[in-house]
Structures are given as C-alpha cells and as structure tokens.
Design a protein around this nucleic acid. Structure first.
Lengths: 140, 140
DNA sequence: CAGTAATGTTGTGCTCTGCAACCAGCACCC
DNA sequence: GGGTGCTGGTTGCAGAGCACAACATTACTG
C-alpha cells in the first residue's frame, strides 16, 4: 500500500473514531446544552442573528428538526425570535442575555478541556493541525 | 488572543462541526449499516471476535444499547454468536460471511469518498494531517 | 454455602431525526 | 388582479439511538 493510501486510511479511521465518541463527550462536557443546541446558538451568535433555514442548511438538518430545536431553545429562554421585517415568512433568531451567558460558560468548559489536551503540543503543531482541519472542513 | 488560543478555538470548532455531520454523512454513505453498527462490526473483525462487554467499554455505550444493536446485527445475519466456552455468561461475537462482505463494501465506499475529498492534497499534507489526528486521538 | 460481581436481556422513557402534509408570505407572469 | 409556484416554518407521525433500572444466569470468594 502506498504511503498516500496509508495516510487516507489513518485519517478515515481517526475521524470515524472521533465521530463515535463526540456526542458522548459533548454531553459530559455541558449536560444542559446538547452538541447541536450549542452549535446552533453559536452560529446565531457568530452571525449576529440568523434564520431557521440558515441553521438547517448549515447543519444539514431537516427544517422540522431545526424548528423543534429552536422551540426548545426559546422555551429555555436562551434565544429570542423576531419576525424578519423584510420578509414576514421568516424569523430572526438571536441568543438572549441568558443564552450568551450559557454559551460563554459552555465555551469556557470546552476550551478548558481542549487546553488540557493540548498542553504538550507546541504552537506550530497546533496551527498546522488547525489549518488541516479547516481545509478538510471546507470541502463539506 | 494569542495564536495558540486562535488555533485551539479553530480546532474546537472544526472538530465539533465534523462530529455534527459525521452521522449524517455516514448514513448517506452506507444506509444499511449505521455508523455505530459499522464500528461494532469492524471491532469484532479486528479483534477476531469479541464480547458485548468489550463493545460497550470501547464505545462507551450502555450494555443494553449494545445488546440491542447486537441483536439487530444478528437478525440481519451479519454476525454470529457463540457462547464463550471459558465463561458461560458471555458470548463471542464475530462477523459472518455476509458480515465480512458488507464490512468490506462499506469500507470501500467510505474509502472512495475519502479519496475524492483528498484529490488535491499532496502526500506530505496527507501524512501530516494523519499524524496530527493520531496524536490527538491517542489522548482519548 | 452465602454473598458479591460480571454478562446479557428486557421494560420503559427520553431525545434527535426525517418525511409528509399543511399554512402563510412572497414573486412572477399572463 | 388572479393564478402558479417557491420559500420559511410548524405539526403529526414514525423510527433510531440511548440510558437507567430490574432481572436471570453464571462465576468467583470467603
């Protein structure tokens, strides 16, 4: 097998292994906010408000799923909805004050866990790993 | 924010994004075999037969979950069970002939998808990415 | 032998998810 | 203006995946 094949096989195995465990670890890390909820909240925050359709497209989820997740987030009081003034079909979704607080807490906890994991990586390796992941993710 | 912090944030975001989409892509790639089922079958194969308790430990799943998954795999005819002769409490689980065939097909399909994704990566980048992933995964 | 631990199975209930049907705005075109 | 079709969201329904708890069976230990 060529070195190229071996590399691809390794990447395949490692990413699969990661996927297997991601949900489990995420739920341990911040039990009150699922991986998907956290990600949705994060995207709303990053974009300064977005629509349910944007979330569905970005996460490749059915709009019904997004609708329910958003409903749950609203019930929890971590987001606010407002009708889009430019298009009354849609809604603009934003994190509430409580949502921003929760998001920040979850982010700190996640970040702490990553920091611990990367203590023995030097800056160059970290930057390299990040570059590869971004490059990989861009093909999604 | 330091470059180190930025790298960690990027890695965090990208790995989270990956986890979000992994299940979805896996189900598209081989609809008849879920990510978890595939992984279980793979582990049985790699270890030359294993017990349900091993699967539960490895995937950090409840034994009841494993029991049902294994039941489904058996019903599909992709594994065979036999009572462990050394310990009649346990069972040895192995892929059947059909299971090996399915495993190989799923593997080929996954590999094809990875090959396509990496067409524009040179060998060095591929090897580097693989190295980082392994190093990351070892801390699991 | 009695007590404890390990292996699986089953009952129950929850969350996440997709599909299909539906309603409400918007856009276009005759 | 009135049809036709598209887009954004909600709801009913069904299935998968998961954990917890209770249980039966087998093994180990004092």
């Amino acid at each position: 097998m060529s070195g190229r094949d071996a590399s691809i096989e390794t990447i395949q195995r490692e990413l699969t292994a990661f996927a297997r465990r991601a949900r489990h670890k995420a739920s341990q890390l911040h039990p009150e906010l699922s991986l998907v909820s956290y990600s949705m909240l994060d995207l709303m925050n990053e974009r300064g408000g977005c629509r349910a359709a944007d979330l569905a497209a970005h996460f490749m989820l059915d709009k019904s799923t997004v609708s329910r997740q958003v409903g749950a987030l609203e019930k929890l009081g971590v987001i606010v909805r407002e009708v889009d003034p430019d298009d009354h079909r849609g809604q603009i979704l934003r994190p509430s004050e409580a949502g921003l607080k929760l998001l920040n807490e979850a982010y700190q906890m996640r970040r702490q866990s990553f920091l611990e994991r990367f203590t023995d990586w030097d800056d160059e390796d970290l930057a390299g790993f990040a570059r590869y992941l971004v490059r990989y993710g861009e093909a999604d």
